[in-house]
């Protein structure tokens, strides 16, 4: 198994390497190939010693929307209901196996009773956010290198460098990005990078009343997330797109897209 994975990673490296060499030969040498791991943050925080992910336990989410609300407060996301770094969706599958999904105002003000209550076969809430993909399509398409994956595995946007072409918004399969109406640059969840680098939890995790969200190290440390990955069956959103999300869901229904 380990060998197979290694082989796959190796093959991918070769494929990616060849592709970028071909493309690079068009535009000449670039400094990006220098992969120096110099410290850019405060000396107290060492990005190379972390690799973050988030677990979302569907069967614990009560759809209160506190996460989406806290996210907007913590990150100054415009309050208008067109811009979300995280939101909650409600799935109602009725007895005809028809799927009804809604997310009024991103779930920030909770949910009204569903219209189809009599026929509910099963129903649940699904919190959504940027999946901080290990193989992020948004980073792949950004023409200028304004969105990137950090050493600790978080996908960020450089607000002072983004040209606002919105190719990344088109490339994100999860609808996790939007164009900030004032900054005119792409914007998205940062895992509350300003909090986690200080040892705090992301705001959505901090306020979740049922611990439906579990934040932590994704690589072999004893942490709540690690335990979740050990004890539960883990699914990710749209695995067929090979984006390799680092937001891991438990009890994820097959209807969720």
């Amino acid at each position: 198994m380990g060998d197979k994975l290694k082989r796959r990673a190796f093959v991918r490296k070769i494929v990616e390497g060849t592709a970028s060499v071909v493309m690079l030969s068009v535009c000449g040498p670039m400094r990006s190939l220098v992969g120096a791991s110099e410290e850019a943050e405060a000396p107290a925080y060492d990005a190379t010693k972390h690799y973050y992910g988030m677990g979302v336990q569907i069967d614990k989410c009560i759809g209160c929307g506190r996460c989406a609300d806290a996210c907007k407060s913590e990150n100054n996301v415009p309050r208008e209901p067109f811009y979300f770094r995280t939101w909650v969706e409600r799935y109602v599958i009725d007895n005809e196996r028809e799927v009804h999904v809604d997310s009024p105002g991103g779930g920030i003000h909770g949910f009204p009773p569903p219209a189809t209550e009599e026929d509910v076969l099963r129903s649940f809430f699904v919190p959504k956010l940027c999946n901080h993909c290990d193989h992020p399509p948004c980073v792949q398409v950004c023409p200028v290198g304004a969105t990137f994956k950090t050493q600790d595995g978080v996908v960020l946007v450089d607000q002072d460098y983004c040209v606002g072409c919105r190719y990344c918004i088109q490339a994100c399969p999860y609808g996790a990005r939007y164009l900030h109406p004032e900054k005119h640059t792409a914007d998205k969840c940062t895992f509350c990078y300003h909090r986690i680098t200080k040892g705090m939890l992301p705001a959505c995790v901090e306020v979740c009343p049922t611990q439906a969200r579990v934040f932590g190290e994704i690589k072999g440390r004893s942490s709540p997330l690690h335990r979740l990955m050990k004890m539960e069956e883990i699914q990710v959103l749209k695995p067929e797109l090979n984006t390799e999300p680092k937001v891991l869901y438990t009890k994820l229904d097959g209807e969720v897209r």
Binding site: M30, A40, A70, D158, D160, Y193
Partner: peptide, 21 residues
């Protein structure tokens, strides 16, 4: 290009955002 194909200086800016919670 210091850390990858991006401005490494963007990271401290993002990490220095104001806390609310």
């Amino acid at each position: 290009g210091e850390l990858g194909h991006y401005r490494a200086n963007a990271i401290p800016v993002i990490a220095g955002a104001k806390l609310h919670y």
